[in-house]
């Protein structure tokens, strides 16, 4: 599978990274090089193999239902590029 300029632009858009045409063009061979290399995995016989789930055998723990956190608005908003009236502010969204 080889990707073209249009695909690179689509991935960039999906990744929310704006790229210039020149940047996108430079990425085409770069990404193809890497993807071409990882595609060697296709030759591995994986019949009957389950995809790995836990790296080290371990069970998912569940916590008790208790309010132990929150009520830290100052901490939550402390690093916000724009915070007003206790909210984060973003450019107007039209739904």
């Amino acid at each position: 599978m080889s990707i073209d300029l249009q695909t690179v632009k689509k991935i960039a858009s999906l990744s929310r990274i704006s790229v210039t045409d020149a940047e996108a063009e430079a990425m085409v061979p770069e990404l193809n090089n890497i993807l071409g290399w990882v595609e060697q995995l296709g030759e591995v016989d994986v019949s009957g193999v389950e995809p790995m789930t836990a790296v080290i055998p371990n069970k998912l723990r569940l916590r008790e239902d208790a309010v132990t956190d929150g009520d830290v608005r100052d901490k939550v908003l402390a690093n916000a590029p724009q915070a007003e009236h206790g909210f984060f502010a973003v450019p107007k969204v039209i739904e």
Binding site: A66, D71, V72, F87
Partner: peptide, 27 residues
């Protein structure tokens, strides 16, 4: 129906002041 959120210990009650029921995980 639960006291706390699915993956954090912040409260779920309806109608609180904005961003007061937010943990660092939820943010």
């Amino acid at each position: 129906t639960s006291q706390a959120k699915l993956f954090s210990g912040a409260a779920t009650a309806f109608g609180a002041e904005p961003n007061t029921q937010v943990s660092l995980i939820d943010a």
